[in-house]
Design a protein around this nucleic acid. Structure first.
Lengths: 251, 251
DNA sequence: GAAAATAAAATGTCAGACAATTAAATGTAT
DNA sequence: ATACATTTAATTGTCTGACATTTTATTTTC
């Protein structure tokens, strides 16, 4: 791992890469202690600040954690689901916000992913998950609920649908997708009219899961996608009126 | 953004968070230049090495890029699909390799995600994608192909299936899932026997996409999942023989 | 034997310097 | 006047050395 060819790229980036490779390849295992900063500086023949920059890069990716004091140091970190969730959401959010993604594409991806979970959720949905969904539906029907709160509840509902599949890997993968698209979806829920229709479809989905009828859930989800797409296009059209723009939108 | 309360956490982490928030919230837009390291050190009332550590953290997440020389500096980076892919794959790989994920759970998640793409792929599959799939199938049938090469080809085939949906957001979301599970899948393709069955199912999937028959593709994918699961369980059983272990496995 | 003081090891932070790189500004020759 | 070379200034990259802070192990003291 100590190799460091004499190319002219950032030393700290090269060192970070060497250590990252060692971790990903399994040469260093979870909770293993890295050499101290001073020792690493020696090994790589660089100064301590350079080593520190490399370590901060790894820390930013949750690959290592550091502990101060005697017998402290940098340790290979076990990447938890929570940390991975967070990174996933940040990355997905930035990807969507920085690149002109058409509403259609984002919407399609979101519902395609959710449909992947629906059969599993219908088979396994726990009483807990169902209760969450019912509670969110009830909340969405409250008069005077702000747009932000409605959207947050919408996200919570869809997350429950995903979590209902009882597969943590799926939940991890989809959390980013669903949460990152919230700002996009926010735009289309500002009328009381659309809320009613959305709530009705949410109820149908919850009913279908409760009845263990995946096809019915799938159908309701498809209708929700079509309705969302329809509303989204209306909003886009209104937005772009007089601007002559296409469907591309910066969220 | 300059605020920095006097809590006792790492200064560089706090500064990184402040800048990251500014970027995520849209206070700083793509390609905008950050103040120079010296200016940031002034603003946050810390030393330049501390600022640099913060910037390296952000660079590790592809949030900024730096340029040397006059009129250089740190700039907000447009997160590209490629960079996001890479991070996704790294994160997913570590998540799976560091946490004891049962083969069943990983397998289920992978095929659930792929099934989400299949209807779209069947509707839109380009000649290009079909050609890729056919080429990979042909490659998989070559005698003397190493296990590693077979697995790489398998991954390429499944990526083509995903990319066939023609939705970059979906491709991004699934790239990590599919690639991260490669090591898991590697274990189950070491017999010539299983290769034949897998190739046959790949062909059926390609045929179904070409014929625009999503149901047939879905059915073949289901069978592939069942077969994969079956093989995987055999491998697990053989592995754990005499160890009295459960199904959990460290990849 | 228990509590307090001490020592040691490590990360966190700072200050100041120099090297390397890059684009703009300036100068020079054709 | 234009093309090319030189200088200059700004900025990141790196180094050295020091001190502060935190944490654990050890030693001392009662």
């Amino acid at each position: 791992m100590k190799i460091d060819p004499d190319n002219k790229a950032d030393l700290s980036a090269q060192i970070a890469k060497a250590i990252r490779d060692a971790i990903v390849n399994g040469d260093m295992i979870v909770d293993q202690r890295l050499p101290s900063e001073a020792e690493l500086a020696d090994q790589f023949a660089v100064s301590r600040p350079t080593v520190r920059e490399a370590l901060k890069r790894l820390a930013a990716q949750s690959l290592i954690r550091t502990q101060r004091g005697a017998f402290g140091g940098a340790f290979v970190n076990r990447l938890s689901y929570e940390e991975a969730y967070g990174q996933q959401i940040t990355t997905a959010t930035l990807l969507l916000s920085m690149n002109a993604i058409s509403f259609d594409v984002a919407c399609e991806a979101r519902y395609a992913l959710e449909r992947a979970c629906t059969p599993l959720s219908a088979a396994r949905r726990s009483a807990d998950i169902l209760a969450t969904m019912r509670a969110e539906i009830h909340r969405q029907g409250q008069p005077g609920l702000s747009d932000e709160s409605f959207c947050a509840s919408d996200v919570a509902f869809h997350r429950a649908l995903v979590d209902g599949a009882g597969n943590p890997v799926l939940s991890y993968q989809l959390a980013g997708a669903v949460e990152a698209m919230q700002p996009l979806m926010n735009m289309i829920t500002f009328t009381a009219r659309s809320r009613e229709a959305i709530i009705a479809l949410h109820s149908r989905i919850a009913d279908a899961l409760e009845a263990h009828t995946p096809d019915a859930a799938q159908k309701a989800l498809h209708e929700l996608e079509a309705y969302t797409l329809h509303l989204g296009r209306d909003v886009m059209a209104a937005r772009n009126k007089g601007r002559g723009a296409g469907q591309e939108v910066r969220i």
